[in-house]
Each structure stands twice: as C-alpha cells, then as structure tokens.
Design a protein around this nucleic acid. Sequence first.
DNA 1: AGTAGCTAGATAGTGGCAGTATCTTCCATG
DNA 2: CATGGAAGATACTGCCACTATCTAGCTACT
Lengths: 224, 224
Amino acid sequence: MKISELSRTTGVPVASIKYFRRQGLLPAGKATAATLAEYGQEHVQRLRLIKALTTLGGLSIAATRDVLTAVDQADSTDSALGAVSYALPVPVAESPAGDADREAEIGAAAEAEVADLIAAMDWQTPGTSPHVEALTAALRELRRLDAGYRPGELLAYAELARSIARLDLDRAAAFDDAPEALAEQAVIVFALSAPVLELLRRLAQEDQVRRRIPSLPSDGPRTE
Amino acid sequence: MKISELSRTTGVPVASIKYFRRQGLLPAGKATAATLAEYGQEHVQRLRLIKALTTLGGLSIAATRDVLTAVDQADSTDSALGAVSYALPVPVAESPAGDADREAEIGAAAEAEVADLIAAMDWQTPGTSPHVEALTAALRELRRLDAGYRPGELLAYAELARSIARLDLDRAAAFDDAPEALAEQAVIVFALSAPVLELLRRLAQEDQVRRRIPSLPSDGPRTE
DNA sequence: AGTAGCTAGATAGTGGCAGTATCTTCCATG
DNA sequence: CATGGAAGATACTGCCACTATCTAGCTACT
C-alpha cells in the first residue's frame, strides 16, 4: 500500500500521516526504494487508534505518543495494563495560592481525605502514584470553592468507581488469549471508555433532572 | 477592593483578570470613577470558579463562558441544572470516513445500540440531545476499532452511570435552600466531579490490576 | 528512452488558543 | 501637584496541531 492509498483508506491526509510519523506515533513503512515505502494493515489500524485517542480520548499528540510507546514496549504480558495506565495524562489542577493559612488547612484536609479513602477502600496503590497526587489536588481545588464532599460521599463514588473498574478489567481481559492485542485493548478500555462513561453519566443526569423536576420543558438545548 | 488586591487575593495576574473580563467570564467591577473600579467577594469566588473550570475541568475559555452565562441566566430555579448540563462541552469524535459500506454498517449498529440502551434504561432524553449524538459517535469510533461493547456490557456501565447521577443530583440538591447558589453548585457537581470520578476510576483500575495479576513479570496471566 | 506522476524527507507557514505586555488617558491621594 | 495605580484598547508571544512547499529521486507507462 502506498501512502496515498493509506490516506484514502483511513481518510487521513498524507501530510498528517507524515506528521504523525515525524512525531513518532506511526512506524515508518517498509522502504522498498529510496523514495518509496510500503504500508500495511497495521498502519491502518494504528491510524484509526491515533484518531480515536486524539478525537474521542482528547489526548494531545505528545500524550498519544507516550501511550502508543507504552503499547509497543509492553512485553505482551501483565505490565501492559500498568504501563498504559501510567502513560495516560491525568487532570491536574494547581491554582496559585492566595492565603497561605487557608491553603495549608485545605491541603491537610484534602490529604487526609484521600488517605482515609484509600484505607477505607483497601486500595493497593503505590505512594508515588500520580493518581493519588492528582486526586489530592482535585479535592483541594473543590475545597477552595467551598464545595468539598460531605462525609461518606466520596466513598460512595469510590464504590461505584470500583464497580466500573471491575467491568473495565473484564473488558480488557477478554483479549488475554491474544497477547499482542492485550496492550492495545488496554488502551481502548482505559483511554476511550472514559468519554463513553462520561456521556452515560450526562444522560443519566439529564434523566434524573427531568424526573426530579417535572416542570422542565421537554425539548432540547436552548437555541441561540 | 482594587484590581491589584483582587489579583493578590486570588493569585491571578492582573492581565489575566482583564482578559477574563474581556472574554465575558468575569463581570466588571463597580466603577467608582472613570479609571477606578471596586471589586468584591463575588469576583474572588468567580475567579476561583473560572480557575477550577479551566484547570481541573479542562474547559476552554469559550466553554467556561458558556457555562458561566448559563449560571448567570438561570432563573435560580429548576432550569439551572438543565442549562448548565447543556452548556458543558461534550467529547465528540468524528473521524473522516474511509470505506462507505463499512461506515454505514457501523453507523447503523451504533445507532441501534444507543436506542436500545435508552429504551432499556427508560431514560427520558429529548431526541435532540447532543449527548445522544455524542454517544452514538463515540460508539461508532469504538466499532471502527473493532472494540465495540459486547451485548449487555454497555448496559452494565449505564446502570452504574445511573447510580452516579443519583449521587450527583443529591449533591446538587443539597443547596436548594439557597437558590442563587444552586446553579453554581450544579456547575461544580456536573463539571468538576467528572475529573474526580475519572481519578477514582483510575485508582480502582490500578487496584484491580494489582489484585488480578499477583504474579511478577516472569509469569504473565497468559503467556504466548 | 523519455517523461509524467508519484514518493520521501526536510523545512517553513498557518490558524487558533490562552494568555501577556504595552500604550494612552485619566484620576485619587499624599 | 506630582505620582502611582487603574481602565480600556491593541499588539505581541508561545504553543500546538496540522498544512503547504520544496528538493531530489524513483517508477511505471508509452
């Protein structure tokens, strides 16, 4: 397959394909001559994955490269899942501090909240997990807004998160008879299921709003 | 409070405060003279909210403006929740089509999947909901990758999404005795809980991975 | 054999976004 | 009455994700 055919098959412009190659997202084709290379089905699939990660997953090019590198380097065993998980970017919030006293108080409360949660859930996480850091930062941010979780609320969410994670792992493990596909499946489940879940949550919220507030009009979004 | 004090209190540079004002994210201070305006506590809170929405929530300036406009225009009653929900951006994926036949097949399957799901959940959503559109697009994207949900899987996620939405609504409704704060609380719950939930999911995934794969790299779950 | 039409690789340019900096005019306060 | 801010307008910057152009070299058709 020539690059122009690869472009036609996937709908990705030739210039973009070259760009992805330069950025290390896509392996080079097998060169058949100094100015000619042959692309295969694996390039088609990789391009689809790149597109899905950037558009649906909302990943940057750099983050996509990190994730794909983890996929390629995964020794097609268990480490794939962990590597992919850590390669995914994390929503981090770090507002510039205003009042130092208030910041200290908020910070301590957030850290305690996370520690309590992890203990209560009996979660096995390394102390260096970026997710723990990020969660603490997120809770700090909410506390700055005086919108922290009330006692037990966060735990309720965590229980549901555990249920979701069980489904995720089931989904990822469904491919464990095809080791070379495991890492890729892990990416899909970890990175691309998040937006799907978020949309389900929005739909469920919408339903809940309508059920609890019967006076709401039944049409769609307000037109401008 | 002068703008320099507002800047010091919130940690946001003066130039950025002016920028947010220009973009319609922050109301102008009460002008006390041609070149002097007075800012109050509401500006402090609004700036905190802007920072939280952009950093933690990952919203663009334009999206933040839309959300805040919905907050301000909410007639401090029920419509606040709906307006905010629709003002939030939605992860949309639309890959350029390659093969027309395959696209048609994928599209039809995704649409049927969404319709079935909404029916099974008895969700009350308007046909024009952008969330329905977005979910269909997301499922199309996954199907393009040959990574669609197996029968019943999506429903299981949806059930959990419903549980989450119930928690969300409880959280939002906790402020219904302070109508002017309801819309703001809705923003916080709808826009800022998503990253928290995502982080909980990551932590839970991490825990699940560790529990399911107790072995060391030398002994994978399924070796080739 | 000649040539039109690809191709690879390098480099440069574009448009959008989120600020950041500068400039001018004006005024409150010591 | 001088000076340090403040307001508003405009311009500039850096980053990102492409997109276009250019050079040089095939290669397949006639």
